[in-house]
Each structure stands twice: as C-alpha cells, then as structure tokens.
Computed example of a mutant assay.
Amino acid sequence: MQWLKVILAGLIEVVWVIGLDNAHNVLTWLFTLVFLSLSFYLMLSASNHLPVGTVYAVFVGIGAAGTVITDMLFFNQSFSITKIGLLVLLIIGIIGLKLSTNEPDKGGI
C-alpha cells in the first residue's frame, strides 16, 4: 500500500510540474498547488513507513521520467534515442536503488 502511495505521488508530480509551465491564471495556479500538495502529502505519508531515501528517489524518478515522456508525447518536445536511453538508465538506477536497500519497512499499511 505504501509503495502505491509513492507511485501515485510520482504520477501526480507529473501533473503539477506540467501545471507550473501552463498556469496562467488563479484557477490554474490553484489546480497546480492542489496537485503539488497532494503529491507531497502522499510521498511524506509513505516515508513514515518506508526508507526515506529510496522513497524520494522513486518519487523523483517517476516524476522526471513521466514529465519528459509527457512533454515528448503531448507538448511537441524533441524525441531522441539519447533521451530514451537516459530515461532507461534513470529507471534502471531507481530499480537498483530499491533492490539494494537493506532497510526493512517501518511497518504500517
């Protein structure tokens, strides 16, 4: 359940990061701030039960990879094999970090 919070927080991070670039009035800024708050709430909540460093790495990795992919698919950013290769390397690093963390979960749901 806690890792689901981290994944959801990372996906929501993509929304608020894109919102930062596209917020041009009070309503869009409010929308962005709500998603920013929700994202950090989920991450911090999961950090109470899981290793903080690993949670943060997964959170940021999902957000970074998701933002780059979303930019390429929906906002006409350039697509390159180099970007894809670096994203794959980022994801491998995050998975490796998760697998090499020896800290047990702190308990909880």
Rank of each mutant, 00 (worst) to 15 (best):
V68F: 11
A23K: 03
G61K: 01
G53C: 03
D105F: 06
V6R: 01
G108W: 04
M43I: 08
F40A: 01
A57V: 06
S80P: 03
L73Q: 06
V58M: 07
P104A: 06
I95C: 04
L42K: 00
W29Q: 05
I109C: 12
S45T: 12
A57W: 01
N25E: 15
D21N: 14
Y56W: 10
I109M: 10
K5N: 12
S39H: 07
L86S: 03
V55N: 01
N48I: 08
A57E: 08
I109L: 12
H24G: 11
L86G: 02
V88N: 07
F31V: 13
L33Y: 10
I81P: 04
L30W: 14
H49K: 10
T32G: 05
I62S: 01
I95F: 11
H24Y: 15
I12R: 00
P51K: 07
A65N: 03
V6I: 15
Q2A: 13
I7D: 09
I95K: 00
D71R: 02
G10T: 11
I7K: 03
K106L: 09
G19H: 11
I95T: 09
D105W: 06
L4W: 12
L20M: 15
M43R: 00
G66R: 07
V26A: 15
G61M: 03
V6K: 00
F40P: 00
D21Q: 15
K5Q: 14
I91L: 12
T67D: 13
I84C: 06
K106I: 08
T82S: 14
S47A: 14
V26P: 04
A65Q: 05
I69Q: 04
H49L: 11
I95D: 11
T101F: 05
A46Y: 04
G10L: 11
P104C: 04
Q2C: 07
L73E: 04
G96D: 07
P51F: 13
L99H: 06
L20I: 15
F40L: 09
S47G: 13
I91E: 06
K5H: 14
Y56C: 06
L30Y: 13
G66Q: 09
V68L: 14
E13R: 00
L87G: 02
V6H: 05
Y41H: 02
I94Q: 01
G53F: 06
L11M: 14
L36I: 15
I69N: 02
L27I: 15
V15C: 09
I18M: 06
L86T: 05
G93N: 09
V26G: 11
I81A: 12
S37K: 10
I95M: 08
I7T: 14
I81G: 06
I84Y: 05
A64W: 02
T54L: 11
A23Y: 09
F40H: 04
I7G: 05
N22C: 00
A9T: 10
G108F: 05
L33T: 13
I109T: 14
G19V: 11
F75L: 04
M1S: 05
N22P: 00
F74K: 00
L27W: 15
G85C: 08
L11E: 12
F79G: 02
F35I: 10
A64L: 10
L87I: 12
T101K: 01
P104G: 06
V68T: 14
A65M: 06
N102M: 14
G61R: 03
F75V: 01
V26W: 15
N48K: 13
L87E: 01
I109Q: 12
L50A: 11
F59L: 04
L4T: 12
